[in-house]
Design a binder for these strands. Structure first.
Lengths: 194, 194
DNA sequence: CTATATAACAAACAGTCGTTTGTTTTTCTA
DNA sequence: TAGAAAAACAAACGACTGTTTGTTATATAG
């Protein structure tokens, strides 16, 4: 067999394209970010981007996938270090929020760009998010809660509040992502204590 | 004094323009909605919209203001019917969520369009939102909570979860906006009971 | 009835959009 | 070092963008 595929060039600029795309998609949103914006940011001509991505939507999907992968990895790693169900959930919440607010732009794109903004790729984005949501559903399922507790609402309450924090969080604030996540969880946990 | 101002025409089409703008801004977002989209929806020519609004941004601000007014009115009315602090908050949460998920498009534009999407009007939008947030801050301040409770986190947790519900709520679901708001509040309240 | 403010049309403006095409430069492999 | 693949440039395509301008129809007040 002949080696038909060549190794990618060493100074690959694809990461840079993704980085700047993530930054712009997060800052301005998907629709308001033009391919020319991205091209300018990476110091290329607009057409050159189409060597790496067939369409603007594919560029977003790539950023989105990387964002989901990033959050998922962080949360999985955080969970693995704990054994107690409540501590697992707290670790997950902290990791989730730190991924959103500290990791950078990829993660924020995931919760800022709506699937409906990218009709042709919407189903793919929704599937990616659902897979992640399932992670939290399992954590909540493992909690020792009173039998009448609505675990779905519990998950939606926590995850919604965490995701919404992007709108009011700012870097120099009194609370870090870690303390925010912890104080949310404390408010929720005290409900279930004797 | 002479009457220089004339009464507006009876079949004023301004409400229709606002309605369709709200619908489109909610469905597609601000950037992805064109003036031609709106003009088509109200069966006008694009240029005719500029008789009513000087710019696209002004159209958004008008929708946004109406949205804030709508939510605020609903919540204020709901609060007024209650006396107990917890019941006031629950009534406010229910009204808030019903305004978002049942009232229509105006209210959703308020939490779906980010101020940063409209640079020239951003400050105005932020001010409108802050005024509304203050309403909830007062309700939380009135709650009989243990002294060590972080009331700011409490408010952000509740309001964030309520606002995020737009992303997963769908009309035919098992839970109505009212039951969602109530179950969120129950999860939060049980923490503070003896 | 007529004057006038209201509200729309009709048509275009310059600029930007995502994308395509053909060509050139750069880099790695054999 | 020659050849090929990778990665960029250069330039344009048609469609669409927010907006402006001049004109026309319509309703209402005097």
């Amino acid at each position: 067999m002949t080696q038909t595929l060549r190794a990618p060039r060493s100074d690959n600029r694809l990461p840079q394209i993704l980085d700047e795309s993530a930054r712009l998609f997060r800052e301005k949103g998907y629709a308001a970010t033009s391919m020319r914006d991205i091209a300018t940011a990476v110091d290329m001509l607009p057409g050159s981007l189409y060597y790496h991505f067939a369409a603007k939507e594919d560029l977003l999907v790539a950023v989105y996938e990387e964002g989901v992968r990033l959050i998922t990895d962080k949360v999985r790693a955080a969970i693995a270090r704990q054994t107690d169900p409540w501590q697992k959930l707290e670790a997950a919440a902290v990791a989730h929020l730190e991924a959103l607010l500290k990791t950078g732009d990829y993660a924020l794109v995931v919760i800022r760009v709506l699937p409906q903004d990218v009709p042709k790729a919407a189903a793919r984005l929704v599937a990616l998010r659902d897979g992640y949501d399932n992670l939290f559903a399992q954590l909540v399922a493992a909690l020792p809660l009173p039998p009448q507790t609505d675990r779905q609402s519990f998950r939606l309450l926590l995850l919604g509040a965490l995701n919404w924090s992007q709108h009011w969080y700012h870097d120099g604030g009194r609370h870090s992502p870690r303390t925010i996540a912890r104080s949310f969880l404390r408010l929720l946990r005290e409900a279930q204590l004797p």
